[in-house]
Each structure stands twice: as C-alpha cells, then as structure tokens.
C-alpha cells in the first residue's frame, strides 16, 4: 500500500478529499507535537508562563478533531468508500481521537509545569522526566511519520517500544515514592511529578494506538489487544 493509491480514483474530487484528510491529520499531528514539545520544555525548565500558554491553546487541537471528524462523516456519506479508502477513513477517525487525547495530556502537563515552577526546582528529577518526555516525543513523531508513509513495519516497532515507556514511568513512580517517604514535605511536589510522568506514559499508549491503526490501514488486520508475537504472525513480519 502506498499513498499514491489515494490519488488514483476515477473521481478527481474524491482524490482531493482523501488527500485533504491525510494532510489535515498530519497538520493536527504537527500541532500536537508542538504542544507536547513546549509542555515538556515548560516542565523541565520550570517555565510557568509557557505551561499555561500550552494548556490554553488546547482548543485548537480540539477544533481540528471536530472538523476532521465532520469531513470523515461527509466522505462516508457521499462516497461510501471501500477497501483501502474505507480503512483510511476508519483509521483517521481513530487516529484523531488519540491525537486529541495526547493534546489533553500535553495540556495537563502544561498546568502541572506552571504549578511546579512555583516550587523548589531540583534538577536531577526533572532530567528523568525529560528523558521519558523525549522518548514519547520520538514515539509520537515516528507514529505520525509511519502514518504519512503508510509504513507498517515502523508502526510495529513503535508498538513494541511502548513497553520501555511503561518501564520509565514505573521507575519515576518508585523514585517519587521513596522521596515522599524520606521527606513528607515534598509530597505535593512529587505527586505532581508523578502525575506528569503518568501523562507521558498515557501519551505513549496513544502513540501505540495510532501505530496500531496504521497497521490496520496498511494490512487490514486489527492487532489491538494481541500479544506482540501474535501480531507478528498476523502481519507476517
């Protein structure tokens, strides 16, 4: 499956509609990436203003989700797409839901960043948060890349990578707990850090979901809720 095949319909208008949908998803993805980058920057640099700014701009992502959704319903109603085209529409509807959720998590991180900025700012812990943040940033970036290139192999790798994010999250949680036990006055701060890590972990899950939709789009196989070994057998890689 290549992106060329969305441009070969007898109806030129249909080509344009599908092409437009794909660009809109990538535009929304770009916006989500941008919010995520700034939210992580805000929390690690202790930039309260930037945190609030990112949180306040989440509506832009929400608006895109609504408009892409509408466009999908319209294409479904007027074109009754089949096969690869149908899978594209179904995948888009699902991808944008997860993108919107990533936006919500970025918003949450933005608020946490502004709250944490007013408190003590020990560097060592935020570096772990930063590492986790960079990992999910890469995942989000790569999954959007896989979506645009219809690359199921890359998508499968991202699905596997989510495990590492979960481990990173566990590690931060454990550290937070021991810090809170050591000094109960830090509980509030470490609760927030733990929430931020939790948000990043959720973003990893959403990136994984998007990759699963990419595999569905390319191979027509629904691999959700399968073990990774089963998945590899399903898609024959």
């Amino acid at each position: 499956m290549t992106s060329e095949q969305f441009k070969q319909h007898t109806s030129r208008r249909f080509n344009e509609e599908l092409e437009h949908l794909r660009t809109e998803v990538l535009r929304m993805g770009g916006l989500v990436e941008n919010h995520l980058d700034r939210a992580i920057e805000a929390i690690t640099a202790g930039d309260s203003e930037m945190g609030l700014l990112v949180a306040g701009e989440d509506y832009k992502i929400n608006e895109l989700e609504v408009s892409i959704d509408e466009e999908c319903s319209r294409v479904l109603a007027t074109r009754a797409p089949a096969a690869g085209d149908l899978r594209l529409i179904v995948a888009v509807i699902k991808v944008i839901t997860d993108l919107e959720r990533i936006g919500d998590e970025a918003q949450r991180i933005g608020y946490l960043a502004s709250r944490l900025a007013s408190q003590d700012h020990p560097h060592d812990h935020y570096s772990e948060l930063k590492a986790l943040g960079e990992h999910v940033q890469t995942m989000v970036h790569d999954t959007l890349d896989a979506f645009s290139r219809l690359d199921a192999d890359d998508a499968l790798q991202i699905v596997e990578e989510d495990k590492l994010v979960d481990e990173g999250y566990d590690q931060i949680t454990r550290q937070c707990i021991s810090m809170m036990m050591e000094d109960p006055r830090t509980i509030r701060r470490f609760m927030d850090i733990s929430w931020a890590a939790r948000a990043l972990e959720r973003i990893g899950d959403h990136a994984k979901n998007i990759s699963e939709y990419v595999i569905y789009l390319v191979h027509g196989r629904d691999i959700r809720h399968l073990e990774i070994s089963e998945v590899k057998r399903e898609v024959g890689s």
């Binding site: 095949q5 070969q8 319909h9 007898t10 109806s11 249909f14 074109r79 797409p81 089949a82 096969a83 690869g84 085209d85 149908l86 899978r87 191979h219 027509g220």
Partner: peptide, 18 residues
C-alpha cells in the same frame, strides 16, 4: 469490501478504474 486480495478488485471496489 474491506480488504480485497487482488489489486484489480481493490481498484474496482474503491472506484479507481482507469
């Protein structure tokens, strides 16, 4: 209609026929 095996079938059911 969701995942045909042959390219010609896919082209036909998706209205991609030159």
């Amino acid at each position: 209609f969701t995942n045909p095996s042959h390219k010609l079938t896919e082209d036909y059911v998706t209205g991609r026929f030159g």
